[in-house]
């Protein structure tokens, strides 16, 4: 324990700024992935264990688009939309076949896709490490805030994640479509009886969830190494976030993602060797005290 170091950091403005920004950098990307996972679970009642692999192919789609077009915007868009469409197809052709069946069946379908997608990436891109590269627009020195530094790319990343999160939340809380989605989460039969095509709705929601994972992957492509199997660690972390925040709750995912981000940022100062243990402990604690998570509603 180095709690003195932690106290020392908290009493200095520059250190606090740096570590809070670190928490946001880690947390916001995690939030994008976890909110997709949570949204899919909330509406469809399935856990997309292949979500980490969707994040991976988002990064690879962006990588390819950037190589072809040299446009960062197109790279992000193709990562997001590519995975969104992929998710819809995946839902229609595979996931929808195991709705209402044993959770193990859903797990296996996802497991199959984790294996297949990892191998496909290895076949198409090779086993070596890849990096998309930082677009010229962000080749700026870090921005100074209160004595701390924040790289401009991270400012952009946090900003765009926040905008996406806000749009998602508004879309679900305030629009008619959001009402339908929320209704379908509670009583799909009734929604179907009201003449709404739930099949299409499910595919669409799954697509949105996948799009979020793909966007996160594309945003990570300039700064994180692309390898087959890169989805694994993000899957575990976003899974922890979803469980802590509450399966199905977007706001819960947001709070939990920031919680994890800040725990890691300040934990690296105060209890560096126990950061991972802390995350598992937090997850276990939430499951024991309130299994449905901070903001989740209990499943029957």
């Amino acid at each position: 324990m180095e709690l003195q170091a932690l106290a020392g950091c908290l009493s200095s403005v520059s250190c606090t700024v740096m570590q809070v920004s670190t928490g946001l950098i880690i947390g916001m990307l995690l939030f994008l992935v976890a909110s997709g996972l949570s949204l899919i679970f909330g509406v469809l009642g399935v856990i997309n264990f292949a979500h980490g692999s969707f994040y991976m192919i988002g990064a690879y789609f962006a990588f390819s688009a950037y190589q072809l077009t040299d446009s960062f915007t197109l790279a992000i868009l193709s990562g997001a939309l590519g995975v969104g469409i992929f998710g819809m197809v995946f839902e229609r052709l595979f996931m929808s076949k195991v709705y209402g069946r044993d959770v193990l069946m859903q797990l296996l379908v996802c497991y199959a896709f984790i294996l297949i997608l990892d191998d496909m990436v290895k076949i198409l891109y090779g086993a070596e490490y890849k990096l998309m590269g930082m677009p010229q627009a962000f080749a700026l020195p870090p921005i100074q805030v209160g004595g701390g530094f924040i790289p401009s790319y991270y400012v952009f990343m946090i900003g765009i994640s926040a905008v996406i999160g806000l749009v998602l939340w508004l879309g679900i809380a305030k629009t008619r479509f959001g009402k339908v989605v929320r209704a379908a989460a509670i009583n799909p039969t009734m929604v179907g009886a009201l003449g709404i095509n739930t099949t299409l709705l499910y595919a669409f929601v799954f697509g949105i969830g996948s799009l979020l994972a793909g966007t996160a992957g594309a945003l990570a492509a300039p700064i994180r190494t692309l390898t087959p199997g890169m989805g694994l660690s993000i899957l575990i972390e976003s899974f922890i976030v979803t469980v802590i925040g509450g399966m199905g709750s977007i706001v819960g995912a947001f709070i939990a993602a920031l919680l994890i981000g800040l725990t890691r940022a300040f934990g690296s100062m105060g209890f560096p060797l126990f950061v991972d243990g802390m995350m598992f402990a937090m997850m276990a604690l939430v499951l024991i005290v309130k299994p449905s998570g901070l903001l989740g509603r209990p499943v029957h």
Binding site: M18, T22, I26, Y154, S233, G267, S268
Partner: peptide
């Protein structure tokens, strides 16, 4: 295999 090192870098 940690994907992000920001917390270590800022430290």
């Amino acid at each position: 295999f940690q994907p992000d090192y920001t917390e270590n870098i800022t430290k």
